[in-house]
Amino acid sequence: MEHKLPPNEIHELLGVSRSTYYVVINTPSGFYFPASATQAQEIQRLLAEVKMKLDACIPESTPPLLGPAEAPKSQVCLLPVQKKESEVDDNLKRRFRSLTERWKTETQFTSTVIEIVTHPAYQQIIGMGPAIIPLILHQLAIEADHWFWALKAITGEDPVNENSRGKLMDMARAWLEWGESQGYEC
């Protein structure tokens, strides 16, 4: 049974727009994004914890629970979504590059996309959410590779027309045009 709090519900809960901010959870072993059921449950737990702490020690007149900055003493923060590859946070870039390299190496002989996109590194990339769209589009502009599944999963969009199915160059072009129409620098 699927139990998942979709990212847009998290944004709704926090009262911010998905296209403006993304949610990050920092942990001792690194940071991650609320994409899986486990992560969604974790953010709910952290939010409840933060709220309890705030309710207990801060007067009612304090600012909202979480704003566009790191929440005090919590591990949950909101960062602005960037549209340009050059403006994406360096930590995100490093993590994206590392996962991409691992994904490419470990799936180079895999013949089916279903196995390519269910590789753990690719799933972690999808889990990074809308924040990495500029990085994926940048990669796609350099080389047509199998980023379509991730883009569709993250955005819910599919700009590729029926005649272009399977033609990676055409599929890449359709996504890059979509990116430009959404204000991304491709």
Binding site: T112, V113, I114, W149, R165, G166
Partner: peptide, 27 residues
Amino acid sequence: PIYNCIAWAAGDSGRWWEPDPMGIYYW
């Protein structure tokens, strides 16, 4: 990365053939 083995075996080196459930690829 433009084409895969089944496309190649079928004589098509311009597309990736895949029965993916999301219908992203050619089948």
